[in-house]
């Protein structure tokens, strides 16, 4: 109900925009020039998707591995030490991650990864040719975001794996399975939906993250041609322009529409994932 309420309010505020342009023009439009009355969301949506994709590529596999390791192999005492630590890290505010991004990741990308990519891989791989010398861009933001959602995914994965019944572990082990085989089977047979849920949680978090991304992504509205290019995700668009939006016609409606878009993607993705998860659960039972 609240979801519908939020969506309705945002829709209402973005009506002036929707009555002037068609959805096709808005979502497919590539030019964003509020002063001339042009509102094309495509580069922003692309920016959001790219940043999230990089973040997930960085985070998911190590996070799931870590979660499994924590649940299956680490001793009781080690877990008692590591878990609170993870919880602490989940709680660190995004501004702090953003700050760390500026202090560490951006210089790292600018002075090390960038030049290295230029020298060794360069144009050999798609998306690796280097064009942006500043360090602010897709890769930096993706790295920061990836690190940010990492503890979240680990924590949920760990919980899921701990919920695998002990009898199952014993049954598999007494068949002479190694611990890794036992783990593999528990993941495949029991843990998969939960781990998927963890990934979805991470995705939502990364897709909607504002400050940490805004601080490191460079904020240039374009389709990235390399992984070092700056882009301009949706949340950053909203956050950056709230001050001036009152002075330009339709600008406010346009930003509200951006928020609506963001909401739409996250909700659709969440509901879709939930359907998949429920299917999986039913198939396993």
């Amino acid at each position: 109900m609240v979801v519908v309420g939020v969506a309705a309010a945002l829709l209402l505020r973005s009506l002036p925009l929707l009555s002037t342009f068609s959805l096709f023009e808005l979502w497919g439009g590539q030019v964003w020039q509020p002063m001339r009355g042009l509102f094309g969301y495509a580069p922003f949506v692309a920016g959001s998707l790219w940043v999230t994709a990089v973040a997930m590529a960085v985070a998911v596999v190590p996070a799931v591995f870590s979660g499994i390791y924590l649940a299956e192999y680490v001793s009781e005492r080690g877990r008692g030490l590591l878990k609170p630590l993870l919880d602490l890290l989940v709680g660190i505010p995004s501004v702090v991650y953003g700050l760390w991004g500026i202090l560490f990741v951006v210089p790292l990308v600018r002075d090390w990864i960038g030049p290295w990519a230029e020298q060794t891989v360069g144009d050999g791989l798609p998306f690796w040719g280097r064009t942006s010398p500043s360090g602010y861009g897709l890769l930096s933001a993706g790295l920061v975001l990836g690190i940010m959602v990492f503890p979240l995914i680990v924590a949920v994965t760990e919980e899921v794996m701990r919920s695998v019944p002990r009898e199952m572990r014993e049954a598999l082990l007494s068949l002479g399975a190694t611990r890794w085989e036992t783990t593999k089977c528990s993941v495949r047979c029991v843990g998969l939906p939960g781990i998927l849920a963890a990934v979805v949680l991470g995705f939502s978090r990364a897709f909607g993250e504002t400050l940490a991304v805004m601080m490191t992504v460079g904020n240039v509205a374009q389709f990235p041609s390399t992984i070092f290019d700056p882009v301009y995700p949706l949340p950053a668009l909203i956050a950056n322009n709230y001050g001036e939006m009152m002075s330009v016609p339709l600008y406010e409606a346009a930003l509200m529409h951006a928020a609506l878009l963001l909401l739409g993607v996250v909700v659709v993705f969440n509901v879709g994932a939930r359907l998949v998860i429920e299917r999986l659960v039913r198939r396993i039972r």
Partner: peptide, 9 residues
Amino acid sequence: AQKPFPLPM
């Protein structure tokens, strides 16, 4: 085992 525990497959 004491209780039958078929693997979930």
